[in-house]
Amino acid sequence: MMLFAQLKEDVGKSSLEVEAAGKTVAELRELLENDTSLGSLDGIMVAVNEEFSKDDRVIKKGDVIALIPPVSGG
């Protein structure tokens, strides 16, 4: 799972290994909030294969997952 910006700095690296296959995005969020040092993911989006994804999307093996903090480009 890819991390960017503040999340990347908090964790100290640009990716995290997580067991996500078969889980929904909502389940992944819960797992991350409970079992990692990331803390609350309020306002953080989950991207699956470079698309913003809803909570009920089921993650498949091989999917590329990224956590997307509120963007501030431009």
């Binding site: 960017f4 910006a5 503040q6 999340l7 700095e9 609350s40 993911l41 309020d42 306002g43 953080i44 991207a47 913003f52 990224a66 997307i68 903090p69 509120p70 963007v71 501030s72 480009g73 431009g74």
Partner: peptide
């Protein structure tokens, strides 16, 4: 500004911060 995943970090004399952070 809504949906392109790019982030900026401001650097001031007295600190720094990722803007739009969590």
């Amino acid at each position: 500004k809504e949906l392109v995943p790019i982030w900026k970090k401001e650097h001031w004399e007295d600190g720094e911060k990722w803007i739009g952070n969590q």
